[in-house]
């Protein structure tokens, strides 16, 4: 059963341009699906459309069977979908504690206990709890952004290139964290440049090219497909 289902989606940044020309995407409960493809293919645009930041002109988006197309981002957040943007995904002048509080803004009564959980999962946030987010390294900032998303205990998590700019070691650790979050029952849509690592932890894979579905399949099969290896995975 899909928790998130996108079908025939057409969307762009203004009424005229179609960045997403025709996209289908399904995320089953408890799975990780990665979205890979060349730069400018529309991967980030797809996540933004799902999160409610841009309007689609055609197609449908449903979350647990409920249509969410055209709703405001905060309503979609309340329905259990958390989105971590590629950039600008923390409040730089606010402390880590305050960032997490803002992450759980829609459910103020739960902030304290959830913050404890997030800090247990990511001890670095506990250690730097009073520091402003702007003082964090790239990897720590991604961790904070993910922690903020977990403050609503989402059923669906959208991550846009969480490993961008991280060292291989930091990226590896981040993918482990993503997998651990998934094992607790959170379905994750993962956009990545780092395609082979993403395929490693994913159940299903979508390859997007120029605003359209290029290939869709089981992640391990996509990872071993000769043509795909040559074109998208650099050998």
């Amino acid at each position: 059963m899909s928790v998130l289902s996108v079908s025939g989606l057409v969307a762009g940044y203004s009424a005229a341009d179609e960045i997403l020309k025709q996209v289908d995407f399904d995320l089953a409960a408890g799975e990780i699906a990665c979205i890979i493809g060349p730069n400018g293919a529309g991967k980030s645009t797809l996540l933004k459309a799902i999160a409610g930041l841009i309007r689609s002109s055609k197609g449908s988006i449903t979350l647990n069977g409920e249509p969410i197309g055209g709703r405001a981002p905060r309503e979609i957040t309340r329905l259990g979908l958390a989105y971590v943007p590629q950039e600008h995904n923390v409040f730089p002048s606010m402390s880590i504690v305050e960032n997490l509080e803002m992450g759980g803004y829609v459910e103020p009564g739960r902030v304290a206990s959830r913050m404890d959980n997030v800090m247990q999962r990511f001890p670095v946030l506990q250690r730097k709890r009073r520091q402003a987010a702007r003082t964090l390294s790239g990897g720590e900032r991604q961790i904070l952004a993910m922690g903020m998303a977990l403050m609503v205990e989402p059923k669906v998590l959208l991550l846009d290139e969480p490993s961008a700019g991280l060292s291989p070691v930091a990226a590896h650790r981040l993918f482990e964290d993503i997998r651990a979050i998934n094992r607790e029952g959170v379905a994750i849509a993962l956009v990545e440049q780092n395609a082979s690592d993403a395929l490693d932890i994913s159940d299903r894979a979508y390859i997007l090219v120029d605003g359209r579905n290029h290939r869709t399949g089981v992640a391990s099969q996509i990872a071993n497909d000769a043509e795909i290896r040559r074109v998208f995975l650099g050998g």
């Binding site: 930041l53 905060r74 957040t77 943007p85 923390v90 730089p92 803002m102 803004y105 829609v106 903020m148």
Partner: peptide
């Protein structure tokens, strides 16, 4: 960050 504030509700 107004956009992120919107996302966070």
């Amino acid at each position: 960050n107004p956009m992120l504030a919107d996302i966070k509700g």
